[in-house]
Design a protein around this nucleic acid. Structure first.
Lengths: 190, 190
DNA sequence: TCTTCAACGAGACGCTTAGTACCGTAGATC
DNA sequence: GATCTACGGTACTAAGCGTCTCGTTGAAGA
C-alpha cells in the first residue's frame, strides 16, 4: 500500500461533473481547465495530476456515463434486421435533439485529436463490441442474410450516417431507420 | 469608387498561401494567426481587417483551391452508377494518402464550428451542386434505377463513408467504390 | 500515539496567443 | 497637393496553459 493520502474520490467526481455541466452551459470549445477547476472547487494541480489534457477528462466522463447518461446497446433477439434498425432508430431519435447533436459534434471533433474519445463515443453509441459488423456477419453465417456488402462496409456506412446526422441536424423521420437498414442489408422492408 | 488605397491582392494571396504552407508544415491545430502573419510577411492587423477568424481564412483558401488544388467533379456520362463510382474511387484513393486524410480530418473538425467550411469542403469533394442526390434522382426519373433509398439518403451514406475513411485511415481496396455504389443504388455490380 | 508522506485547495509565476490600438509610410482618389 | 485608407510593424491588454510552491489534511507505518 502506498504511503500518504489516497486519491480523493470526491474531487474526481466533482471534476467529471463539472466538465459535463460546463459543456452543457457554454459549449465544448469554450470550456477551460481553469473553469473546470473553479466549477469543481478543486485546485488546478489536482486536475493536471490525473489528466494530461482536457480530452482525457472528457474520455473518462464519457466512460463513466457522466456526459451521456443514456446508452444504446444493440438488441439481440436473433433477428439482425430488427435488432439493428431498432438500435438505429433510437440513436437517430436521440440525435434529433439539437443539444445532443451538438454534443456529439464536439465529441467527434475531439475524436480527431484523441482516438480514445473516438472509442468511447463508439462505445456509448453501442457501436463497439459487438459491432454492427459482427452482427451482420453472424446473420450471414446463419444464412439469414446475403447482403451485397461486407459487415465492415455496412458498419462504416451506418456509423457514417450517424455522424452526418450529428453534423447536419437533419430531422429524423420515424421509420426511416428500418428502411435504411433493410436497404443496406439487401432485404425488402416489411 | 472608395477613397484611399485599395486592398492589396499581394497580401491577400500571401495570407492564403501562408496558411496552406503552415498547415502542411505543422498541422492544422498548431497554426496561429501570428505565425500566418509572419510567414506571409504581413501585419497582424491586415489579417484581422479582412478575416474574423482562422476558420474564415481556411474557408477562403479552400474556395480558391489554395489548400486542396485537386477537385473532384462527378462525371456526367449519363450512366449514374459508372459516374458516381468513378468519382468515389477518386475520392477514396485521394484519402488513401495519410496527409490528405489528416487534412480532411482537420477540415471536418473546423466544419463543426463553421458551416461555411463544411460547404467549401463539400464543394471541393464534388458533393455540392449537382450533388450525388440529384444525380440519383435523375437516374430514377429516367427509369435507369429503382433504388430502395432516396437520393438524399444515398448522398448522406456516401458522404458519411468518405468522412469515416478520412477519420479511420482505412486503406482503400481498388474496385471497392464500385461495389459500394452498386449496392447503394440497388444494382448488381458488373 | 506519533512520524512520515502524498494528495489536497489555493494561488503566483512565466509563457504563448488572441485581438486591439497606434505609429509612420505608401498608394489611390478628388 | 490635400485627403483618405490600407499597409507593415510594434506595443499593449486579457486570458488560458502548464509548472511550481505554499500550508493543510488525512492515511499508512513505526
Amino acid at each position: 500500500m502506498p504511503r500518504g493520502a489516497a486519491r480523493s474520490e470526491a474531487s474526481r467526481t466533482a471534476i467529471l461533473t463539472a466538465i459535463a455541466t460546463l459543456i452543457d452551459r457554454m459549449g465544448f470549445d469554450n470550456v477551460t481547465i481553469e473553469a473546470i477547476a473553479t466549477e469543481a472547487g478543486v485546485g488546478k494541480q489536482t486536475i493536471y495530476r490525473w489528466y494530461p489534457s482536457k480530452n482525457a477528462i472528457v474520455a473518462e466522463a464519457l466512460a463513466e456515463g457522466t456526459l451521456v447518461p443514456e446508452s444504446f446497446p444493440v438488441p439481440e433477439t436473433g433477428d439482425a434486421l430488427a435488432d439493428i434498425s431498432a438500435w438505429l432508430e433510437r440513436v437517430l431519435a436521440f440525435l434529433g435533439d439539437e443539444t445532443h447533436a451538438a454534443l456529439l459534434g464536439s465529441l467527434l471533433s475531439a475524436s480527431i485529436d484523441s482516438p480514445e474519445i473516438g472509442l468511447r463515443v463508439a462505445e456509448r453509441l453501442g457501436m463497439a463490441s459487438p459491432t454492427v459488423a459482427e452482427r451482420v456477419q453472424q446473420a450471414r453465417d446463419a444464412g439469414q442474410l446475403r447482403p451485397a456488402l461486407t459487415g465492415e462496409q455496412i458498419d462504416q456506412l451506418i456509423f457514417g450516417l450517424v455522424v452526418m446526422r450529428a453534423l447536419g441536424r437533419a430531422p429524423y423521420v420515424p421509420g426511416e431507420a428500418h428502411r435504411l437498414v433493410a436497404a443496406l442489408l439487401g432485404v425488402a422492408p416489411d
